[in-house]
């Protein structure tokens, strides 16, 4: 029991994910800055930002259901911690709980639902448009993402546990090496971009169009929750891809640890580069893209996986 509490609160969970998430957030800002010929923020910048938000005022809106407004970021934050714990457990300790992939899909769903609930509770026009766009994004990328996850499940012999997928990869080589694996991995990276709300799919939070969208009315500690949750997604989403397609990380030797971290960082940097070399797409283009290109591509990967290529 104590062990699981440790998992949840300290190592792959809350403490580690916050600190590591903020560091990855710094990497994101730094790499973006370097791409744009800038120096970029200092190392502790995200820590300062989040800490500062804790000292600011929370502004609640009169005549709005502000219980939802307050509770939404907290639930979202909790669900993100849980997801990170589960993914981190299989990433670092190779222990899992039964059927954790299904659990992860639903927890990530909760995050989006909280974002929609919290922003639409304010009654602000921009927030409501942001909520609407977030919902449309959810509809468009969810199918592709689930099918991407199906590929390793099928290849590992219809196992929905992360640990079993890892064990399969240890025995038979990485899934990314197969034809279905590489297709699913590429679609998976695009889905990650959408899940993270990064350019080109930051349609829901488009700052120059709808002023930060869902987060517009949040201030102070509640905003800090959203920011932290957002940075934590940097931790577990690439990790999940590493586990599903690239064989995870093993502590067998020093070299394998470096390889594991390298795989993780590579995916992060690919995401950041995609972010920095594309403009934001329109919501209809995004839906078109996911339903006409990404989902069929993922479906092909699933079919290939079933025939065993």
């Amino acid at each position: 029991m104590l062990k699981y509490l440790f998992y949840l609160l300290v190592f792959p969970g809350f403490l580690f994910a916050s600190v590591f998430g903020l560091i990855v957030g710094w990497i994101e800002r730094k790499v973006s800055a370097r791409v744009q010929f800038r120096v970029g923020p200092p190392f502790f910048q995200n820590f300062y930002d989040v800490f500062k938000l804790w000292g600011k005022e929370i502004i609640l809106i009169k005549n709005s259901p502000y219980f939802i407004f307050i509770i939404a970021p907290i639930i979202a934050f909790a669900s993100v911690i849980m997801t990170t714990t589960i993914v981190g457990m299989s990433f670092f300790y190779h222990v899992g709980i039964g059927g954790d992939l299904i659990f992860i899909i639903y927890l990530m769903f909760i995050y989006s639902v909280c974002l929609i609930l919290g922003s639409s509770s304010t009654g602000n026009v921009y927030s409501s448009i942001g909520a609407g766009r977030e919902m449309k994004m959810l509809i468009s990328d969810e199918l592709a993402f689930v099918m991407v996850i199906l590929v390793p499940i099928i290849q590992a012999g219809y196992k929905i546990d992360l640990t079993q997928i890892l064990a399969y990869q240890n025995a038979n080589g990485m899934i990314i090496g197969t034809a279905s694996g590489i297709i699913a991995f590429i679609v998976g990276i695009i889905c990650l971009q959408a899940k993270m709300g990064m350019v080109p799919f930051d349609i829901a939070e488009a700052e120059t169009e709808i002023v930060g969208g869902p987060l517009m009315e949040y201030s102070g500690p509640l905003l800090a929750f959203w920011k932290l949750a957002h940075y934590m997604m940097y931790v577990f989403l690439p990790m999940l891809l590493v586990i599903l397609f690239c064989g995870g990380m093993s502590f067998a030797s020093f070299g394998s640890i470096i390889a594991g971290i390298g795989k993780y960082l590579l995916i992060v940097v690919i995401m950041i580069l995609i972010r920095n070399t594309n403009p934001r797409v329109r919501i209809d283009t995004a839906i078109n893209f996911f339903w006409k290109w990404a989902s069929p591509l993922a479906l092909i990967a699933v079919i290939l996986a079933i025939i065993g290529v």
Partner: peptide
């Protein structure tokens, strides 16, 4: 224009 369509890299480059 780059900034408006979320293409901050274009923004930074041209302003450089």
């Amino acid at each position: 224009a780059g900034h408006f369509i979320g293409y901050d890299t274009l923004w930074m480059w041209t302003w450089k």
